[in-house]
């Protein structure tokens, strides 16, 4: 596949540049803080989509990768004076490897059993970390101010980390796109449709599932490292927030599972919606309710999400938007 000849590739590049440039040009910190959340959501949704949308395995605990990445990074940077770059890469690699090993086991489970196990894993890891003294137990890890020095002080470091998060966002979309257009992706979609039939057709389902589970852990872990480095601290409840995990599912469903555009648009929309609800007085307490109603409405009336609806209205869109 000639990547540079594909319009969708350039669309990903354009969106990434937009996120990178919009706040940077005017040094707009408020916009940056909005977009960082948007970018994180897109990263989580795009990677979760590899499991839910491509493979048909509902990972309720995908946030465990984000949290582990955050913890590993802050532990390396804060406790062992590593630089940020090697720390996030190692955190991503270790999390991905853990996911691979874990996947060999839990991916033998299907349907509701798998979903339950993923919740169990996230909760087990959260409770473990909350009791794990080297990582600060329930108090978590605080980064000393000196950690930002190597990057030219906190002000400059926050901008750098923002751009890195946007880069990870672009990479997440690119990975989602490349997987979808690959033989590997074709095998995943076959598993989603009918795992037993896919195996009879020659798809090595156990290996494919484990690989995609592991892949879906890498970039969220890196993003977790960057995000919590930016925050300067990490605690178990924020790192392994099961709610965010489920919100990521809402984003994927909102945009349309199985499509790259859908996951990204769903995430960005959800972030806007959430932001809107939080700022409207009287509604801020109800954002969970509204998200719940929204999810229920999508499931009942538009299971294909936004992209499903768009594709039905304009079938030719299928050729442009992945």
């Amino acid at each position: 596949m000639k990547l540079f000849a594909r319009p969708f590739f350039w669309l990903i590049v354009a969106v990434t540049l937009l996120y990178a440039l919009l706040p940077t040009l005017g040094q707009n910190v408020t916009l940056r803080e909005t977009l960082v959340l948007s970018a994180i959501y897109i990263i989580l949704a795009a990677n979760l989509n590899l499991m839910i949308g491509y493979t048909g395995y509902v990972n309720f605990g995908s946030i465990v990768f984000f949290g582990l990445g955050g913890y590993l990074t802050l532990w390396l940077v804060g406790g062992h004076h590593w630089g940020l770059y090697p720390a996030v890469l190692l955190a991503g690699a270790v999390t991905s490897l853990l996911a691979f090993l874990l996947g060999i086991g839990v991916l033998r489970l299907r349907g509701a059993y798998f979903a339950l196990a993923t919740i169990g894993i996230n909760e087990a890891v959260k409770d473990f970390v909350a009791n794990f003294d080297p990582w600060g137990g329930a108090e978590g890890i605080f980064l000393p101010f000196t950690a930002f020095k190597a990057m030219g002080g906190p002000g400059k470091a926050l901008w750098t980390v923002y751009l890195l998060i946007v880069l990870v966002m672009g990479l997440s979309l690119l990975v989602a796109y490349l997987v979808k257009r690959s033989k590997f992706g074709l095998g995943l979609f076959a598993i989603r449709e009918d795992e037993d039939a896919a195996m009879v057709l020659g798809v090595k389902a156990p290996l494919f599932k484990t690989l995609v589970y592991s892949l879906s852990a890498f970039l969220p872990a890196v993003a977790g490292g960057l995000y919590f480095f930016k925050n300067g601290s990490i605690i178990p409840d924020e790192a392994f927030n099961l709610h965010l995990s489920i919100e990521a599912i809402v984003m994927v469903m909102l945009g349309g599972q199985g499509t790259v555009t859908g996951a990204a648009v769903g995430a960005a929309l959800y972030e806007r919606l959430r932001g809107l609800l939080l700022t409207i007085p009287g509604l801020s307490n109800f954002h969970l309710v509204i998200a719940g109603v929204l999810l229920l409405l999508i499931i009942l009336f538009a299971p294909g999400g936004l992209m499903g609806w768009l594709y039905r209205a304009w079938p030719r869109l299928r050729r442009v938007l992945e």
Binding site: I52, I246, F286, L288, V289, L295, L296, P303
Partner: peptide, 19 residues
């Protein structure tokens, strides 16, 4: 598919907890 009832009952949970 089972995903759908998982998500719909979860949305009910979000609504209850939210209220």
């Amino acid at each position: 598919p089972p995903l759908m009832t998982l998500l719909s009952t979860f949305s009910v949970s979000m609504i209850i907890i939210g209220v």
